[in-house]
Every structure is written in structure tokens, then in C-alpha cells.
Design a protein around this nucleic acid. Structure first.
Length: 780
DNA sequence: CCACACCTGATTTTT
DNA sequence: TCAGGTGTGG
């Protein structure tokens, strides 16, 4: 028997050894799913399957990377680099890069992230003269996204009776039109959003039999991770790709399906068995991760859900400690408690920082934990903030790069046409947009042909300068690599200089970020590693497409010795020695947005199941009596999920952390509290009297803040006030201002298209006056 | 044209 | 709280 089969249990081995034909692996939490997948790939290759014929799809880059590394490790050679392992989005994007032109897109199509996409939605809504209060871009975008994920085209959408009824009821009958306009605009921009990467690939396969056949032959063996989280578009693609060989292996756990809001449907699991004649089903039910207590608790939680694939997770691990349930007074106390407990556990049980994870329902909760950890100097890493590539300054530079790769990309163009300012303001941009729309050309084409559209001479000059500059960048593309182009662009546009001159903390940070971006591009250009084994594409276009699909999780080192903070969603697939499940409160978890239907509530419960099963050894469940929600203090009920945990697995008396803490929280389960349905009788006022006001009081009461009265001493302009010509304003001249009265010009500054004068007024101090707009009269 | 002050309205989870 | 939108004054 091959080495790699050692250490697999009966079921796992069964899953690995089944080579031909469809197989579905129902893998409970911590049952060695990744091990099975990677070993299976290794086994396929050991059995003579060419790495080039294996496609493995995951949901995150992290999972893809891990899978690849583990296969490499098992095989001990570099054949693994020929595997096609990646996320749905990145793999499809790569394929589309070769064939997108067949659908009328440029192969260098831009990938719009969520922000770009929402911005397009907004543009479309405005151009249709619809009320953006009624049609909120975010909501509309979500709806469009849902439609795309369900393979509902704009035409389908408009013709579907039920959808139309729904939109009517929601008072947004124009949605179908917006959807259509949005798609057309993206197409015109030569851009695809995240959903398009799936949808357009699907269209490609469906429309062009030669391509379908090509990829069916290439991908003789297909493996799908986290199958419970696939949406109908992904399902349809997998089905088409796998139709020829039927060597499709899906791995999933219906109990961990937590992405239905993104269009994922459990139906895909149930449907899988119907799609093929003979599906082998393997259940992995032995958990190797957690203690018995944790597993038992998790099982009883998930049993509250109706309709699931029957299975019972079990473990041979020690029974372990009970789950600590802890109540704190406030969200800040929750943070303190957790930080103190981490400190204590590190000392007492010799845990490292990286053994801890604080997991929560919403990103907004992270602040209290950050503050508390920082106070104790405990290093931490937050996941789920904005990615490096989504920072403003980074997106600005990237927008230039995007534009020179794809001049149709209007989102990029709009972003940088006047940044840094070059005298092409809102009025001009609006005019350009109008011209583009009426002539049915792109904004760039308007700019290129600006002379024939009658712009004011100054504006025209600014436009021509801009066009010349961008064209000079474009001409670099053939001769220079991505780094050289990016560096040149940063320099030439003064973007780097602008940030360099900004001496504020943020300015410095931004400058450093730009440098970091340039470095990373350089690194990317120089790294010999290729992704999936084929010809290395080191063009700027390839770079841009790749980074849009990166999340902040991909930029952080998971092995760093830091406490990890992230949402439960982001923690899927991970495990930690010690887990804090925080914020177990009604309206927060289960979230207020998800308590209206049984389906939603069950998904929240699965989320609870996921967080419980992340823990290997120790699990704390915390909840706070009061919490700041969008600025104001609210009181909370404990989560119903806590009540669903059998008492036998719980320890409600845990006092935890340092002694200092004991005064600032009441440990969850005094008999009185429990008798009274959970909460003590403290009012918020009581709480504040006892424990002091909550921290982070940045706002001083209005009656204390000294109002800086900007007393302008009244001035009546001399009769017959006439503003002098700008050229007459010179240093040393005595001038009169309509409002500020008389003063002397001290200094001239500002760019030539926007001159400013620094003037010291007799009664109103020094002021900067913009000569183009303010009226000044030179006193003779 | 642009900087800044003020106001308002929104808040789930993410490739 | 906070980001984005609007209004105002330079």
C-alpha cells in the first residue's frame, strides 16, 4: 500500500481510492476533508492521471494554496505545479482571459470589484433619472448579483411573473431595466464583475461547443471543495465540464452551508445524486479536531435544524472542558474579558497568541477586541477589513494602470481624470459623459477627439495633456514590464510626489502603501513561480486581473504568532486551540436581518455550529448586556442559541481573566439572573454609575466645546466696488475685499490655473483668497 | 474648481 | 460611528 494511505480511516480511504465516476463526500467538521482531497489528488496522480488533467476548485485562495502545498508535500516532486487548483473565480478568469473575445469582451477585460460594480449601478440609476433613495445602489447590486448567480438573465428577469410581482411589491418596478442597463454598461466598459466571471464562463461553454469540448478534455478529473456553498451558476458549470468523463468529486457538509445570501443552495448537494446514474456517497463522521464536549454540543445545536443529510459526528478525543458561557456588562467589557483571559491562558497553559481566535458575527464588533488587545500588548491580526488593494491611494494608482490596459474602463477613467487635479472638474466630466452617451462612444473616445466637441480652450488644453500622457503610458506597454510601467506612471502623474509631500500620518502611510504596491508588482514580475503550470503571463493586464481577486486574508500570514480576529464566515475551514465566540446576543447573532424566515434562522444556526466546531480544546461563548450599535447604546437579550446548548456541556460560572476584571463584569449565571430569564436588573444608568462611563468617549458634550465663533467683522464695500483683473493682484498691493475689507497681499501661491493670494486683512486676519472666484479690488 | 463643514442615513455574512 | 452627499465660501 502506498505511504500516503497510511493514517487514513476506513471511510477516508474509500473516498480516496474511488477514482472513476462521480463521488460525493459528506465531510463533517474536522473530519479530515482537506486531507482526503489532497490525498485523493495524489492518488489520482500516482495512478497515472496527468496533473494537467486535474481541476480542483475552492472558494478561497487560501484553501487553494494550502491544497497545492499539501499535494506537493505528499508527492515530493514538482508535478503538483501542473495541477489546475484555484478558486472558481480565479480559474475562470484565467480561462476567460484567453477566450473572452468570443463573447465580445476584450481579453484584457477589467474585473470590477464590489465597489466598482456598485458605482456602475449608481451611474446607471442616475442616468435613468431614478430616485436613488428608492433604488439604493447596494440593494440593487445585491439583487442583480442574486439574479446572475441564479443564471437569470435580464431578459428572464423582465419576463418572470413572480420576480416582477416581487419588485412591484417592493416598489421598484424599474429593476429589470436597471439590471439590463447595468449589464450593457459593464460590457461597454469592457468589464466583468465577480458574478460575470462565473456567468460569462458558463455562456462561453454553452455557446461554443468547441470550447466546451476543449475544457472537457482538459479537465478529466474535477474536484470541488465546499460544495455546499456553490450557487446555481457554479453548479451548471461543473455539470457541463464533468459531463464527458463524469469524474466529478464534490466535498461538502450541508451543516456548514453558510453562504445562501450569496446564492449558494443546498439543492446542489441533493441534486448531485440525481444527476448521475451511480453516485458513490461517502460520509466522514469521525472528528479529529475537537473534544467530545464540543462535538456533543455542536451535534445538539445542529439537530435543531430540519431537513439535513443524516449524520452524527463523533470523536475519540478526550471529553475535555466544558464550554464557558460568560456574560459581560458591555461590549467593551467583553473585549477586556477576552483579552484578560487570553493573557491568563497564555501564562497558565502556555498557549501562544496564535492558538486564540476571536470570532464574531459582524465585522463592526472587532473594535472592542482590538482596543482591549492593544491595551495588553497582545499582537493580533484582523481579517476582513478592506484589502490592501482596496485602499484609496492604491486604487488610484491602479486606476491609471487599468485605464491604460483598457481605455473603455470608465470607472477607472472617472476616478483619475482629475486626480491629481489638472483642471478637469465636475462640469467638464459631466459634459464628457453626456457626449459619450449621446454619441454612443466611450468617455475615452470623447477625450481623444476632444477638439471636435467644443470645449473651452483651457479645458481642451488640460484634456489634451491628459490624453497625451495616458497615450505615452500605453506606448510603454509593449517594451516595459508591469513594474516599470507602474513606476513610471506613479512618477509621471505626480501621484507619488503628492503623497510624499503630505506630511500627515495618513499621508505618510499612503506614501508607504504606494511604495509597497510598487514593490509587490516588482516582486510579482520577478518571481519565477507560475500559477497553474502553463505559460507565465507577466503582463500588466494579467497582474491587474489577478489582484482584484485577492482578499485581505491572502495578504496575511496565517502562521504569524498573533491572535486572530475574524467573522465566523471567514473562519470556515480553520481551527484553533482556543476559540471565543463573541456577541451571542439576539439581533446580533442570530442577526436581526436573518430572523424572519425559518430558512434564515437555520442558516444562522449553522453559523453557530461552524463557530463551535472551530475550537479544538477550549471554547468560550460570550455576550454583552449593553453594546454600542451605530453610535448609541442598546441593551441585548442573550442569544437563543445559548439556550439551545444542553446545560451539561456548559460552565456558566467561569470567572476567567485577571482579578481586575471581576469588578467589571458579572459572570453570566447568577441564580437570580437565570431565574429572571437571563439578565440582571441593572439599568444602563446603574451600570455607568458602577463601572464608569464606557470608554472611547471622543465627543465632548456640546455645552463644553468652545464654539470657535468665526467673527467676520462687517465690511461694507465702497460704493461702485469693481473687482480688478487677476493680473493686477501682486505682492505688496493694498486691496479691498467685499466682505473682509482692506488688507495687504503678502504672498502669491497656487497653480497657474488656480492662483491664490495670501492676504493680511486689517480686521479679519490672514486669509487665502482664490483669485478666480473671490472679488478683489486693488486700492489705488 | 475645491476644501471643508455639516447633515444624513445606514449597518450581515464575501469571491 | 462613520462614510458619503450636499452646501458654502474662498
Amino acid at each position: 500500500m502506498q505511504d500516503y494511505l497510511q493514517g487514513l480511516n476506513e471511510r477516508q480511504r474509500e473516498a480516496v481510492l474511488h477514482i472513476h465516476g462521480p463521488i460525493m463526500i459528506i465531510a463533517g467538521a474536522g473530519s479530515g476533508k482537506t486531507k482526503v482531497l489532497t490525498t485523493r489528488i495524489a492518488h489520482l496522480m500516482a495512478s497515472g492521471v496527468d496533473a494537467f488533467n486535474i481541476l480542483a476548485l475552492t472558494f478561497t485562495n487560501k484553501a487553494a494554496k494550502e491544497m497545492k502545498e499539501r499535494v506537493e508535500h505528499i508527492l515530493g516532486n514538482n508535478e503538483a505545479r501542473n495541477l489546475y487548483i484555484g478558486t472558481f473565480h480565479s480559474v475562470f478568469a484565467r480561462i476567460l482571459r484567453a477566450d473572452a473575445h468570443r463573447l465580445g469582451y476584450p481579453n484584457n477585460f477589467t474585473i470590477y470589484d464590489t465597489d466598482d460594480a456598485k458605482s456602475v449601478v449608481k451611474t446607471v440609476i442616475n442616468e435613468m433619472h431614478l430616485d436613488d433613495k428608492l433604488y439604493k445602489p447596494a440593494t440593487v447590486y445585491n439583487r442583480i448579483s442574486a439574479a446572475k448567480n441564479a443564471l437569470v438573465t435580464p431578459l428572464d428577469y423582465a419576463n418572470d411573473y413572480y420576480i416582477q410581482q416581487e419588485d412591484m411589491r417592493a416598489n421598484r418596478p424599474a429593476l429589470a431595466k436597471i439590471y439590463d442597463a447595468y449589464c450593457k454598461r459593464c460590457f461597454k466598459n469592457g468589464a466583468m464583475d465577480f458574478d460575470d466571471l462565473l456567468l460569462k464562463f458558463y455562456e462561453l461553454l454553452k455557446t461554443f461547443p468547441d470550447l466546451l469540448s476543449k475544457y472537457q478534455h482538459k479537465f478529466k478529473f474535477i474536484l470541488i471543495d465546499e460544495y455546499q456553498d456553490t450557487n446555481p451558476a457554479q453548479y451548471a458549470i461543473i455539470k457541463m465540464l464533468g459531463a464527458m468523463h463524469e469524474n466529478v468529486c464534490v466535498v461538502g457538509d450541508d451543516a456548514q452551508s453558510i453562504y445562501s445570501f450569496r446564492g449558494a443552495t443546498i439543492q446542489n448537494i441533493l441534486q448531485f445524486q440525481k444527476d448521475y446514474d451511480d453516485v458513490k456517497v461517502v460520509k466522514l463522521e469521525q472528528n479529529y479536531r475537537s473534544t467530545q464536549n464540543i462535538i456533543n454540543a455542536a451535534n445538539s445545536v445542529i439537530s435543531k435544524n430540519k431537513g439535513q443529510i443524516p449524520k452524527v459526528l463523533f470523536t475519540e478525543n478526550a471529553s475535555g472542558e466544558k464550554i464557558k458561557v460568560v456574560k459581560t456588562m458591555s461590549d467593551n467589557d467583553e473585549g477586556k474579558f477576552i483579552a484578560d483571559t487570553i493573557q491568563e491562558q497564555k501564562l497558565r497553559n502556555h498557549f501562544a497568541n496564535k492558538d486564540f481566535a476571536i470570532l464574531y458575527r459582524t465585522n463592526a464588533q472587532s473594535r472592542a477586541f482590538e482596543e482591549a488587545l492593544r491595551r495588553l500588548n497582545i499582537p493580533y491580526t484582523i481579517y476582513g477589513g478592506i484589502s490592501f488593494y482596496q485602499r484609496k491611494e492604491i486604487k488610484d494608482l491602479l486606476a491609471y494602470l487599468r485605464l491604460i490596459i483598457n481605455t473603455k474602463d470608465e470607472e477607472a477613467l472617472k476616478r483619475i481624470i482629475n486626480y491629481p487635479t489638472r483642471g478637469i472638474g465636475k462640469t467638464t466630466v459631466d459634459k464628457i459623459i453626456l457626449l459619450a452617451n449621446t454619441h454612443n462612444i466611450t468617455m475615452w473616445e470623447v477625450l481623444e477627439n476632444a477638439p471636435q466637441f467644443g470645449f473651452r480652450s483651457g479645458t481642451l488644453e488640460a484634456i489634451n495633456e491628459f490624453v497625451t500622457m495616458i497615450k505615452s503610458f500605453i506606448s510603454m506597454l509593449g517594451k516595459h514590464n508591469a513594474y516599470e510601467v507602474a513606476f513610471h506612471v506613479g512618477k509621471q502623474t505626480n501621484l507619488v510626489k503628492e503623497l510624499f509631500n503630505d506630511k500627515s500620518t495618513e499621508g505618510l502611510q499612503k506614501y508607504e502603501n504606494i511604495q509597497e504596491l510598487l514593490n509587490s508588482i516588482k516582486e510579482w514580475v520577478e518571481s519565477p513561480d507560475n500559477e497553474e503550470g502553463e505559460v507565465v503571463d507577466k503582463t500588466l493586464g494579467a497582474y491587474l486581473q489577478q489582484i482584484t481577486l485577492l482578499t485581505d486574508a491572502d495578504e496575511k500570514d496565517p502562521d504569524a504568532d498573533t491572535v486572530k480576529l475574524m467573522t465566523i464566515h471567514a473562519a470556515k475551514g480553520l481551527e484553533f486551540e482556543c476559540v471565543f465566540a463573541a456577541g451571542l446576543e439576539e439581533m446580533l447573532f442570530p442577526n436581526v436581518m436573518s430572523i424572519n424566515t425559518r430558512e434564515e434562522l437555520e442558516e444562522e444556526r449553522r453559523l453557530f455550529y461552524v463557530v463551535i466546531t472551530r475550537a479544538k480544546k477550549k471554547l468560550w461563548i460570550t455576550y454583552a448586556h449593553t453594546r454600542y450599535k451605530f453610535g448609541s447604546l442598546v441593551q441585548n437579550e442573550p442569544s437563543r442559541f445559548i439556550e439551545e446548548l444542553p446545560e451539561e456541556f456548559l460552565d456558566r460560572t467561569y470567572a476567567g481573566g485577571g482579578t481586575r476584571l471581576l469588578s467589571s463584569f458579572s459572570p453570566g449565571g447568577s441564580a437570580f439572573d437565570r431565574l429572571n430569564g437571563g439578565w440582571g436588573q441593572d439599568t444602563v444608568l446603574d451600570a455607568e454609575r458602577k463601572y464608569g462611563p464606557p470608554p472611547s468617549k471622543k465627543t465632548t458634550p456640546s455645552y463644553l466645546s468652545p464654539k470657535p465663533e468665526p467673527k467676520v467683522k462687517e465690511h461694507t464695500p465702497t460704493p461702485g466696488f469693481v473687482a480688478s483683473d487677476v493680473s493686477e493682484i501682486q505682492v505688496g498691493k493694498r486691496v479691498e475685499h467685499q466682505k473682509f475689507g482692506f488688507g495687504e497681499v503678502i504672498k502669491m501661491e497656487g497653480a497657474s490655473h488656480n492662483p491664490m493670494a495670501l492676504i493680511r486683512f486689517e480686521h479679519n486676519g490672514e486669509k487665502k483668497i482664490l483669485l478666480n472666484y473671490a472679488k478683489l479690488r486693488v486700492v489705488e
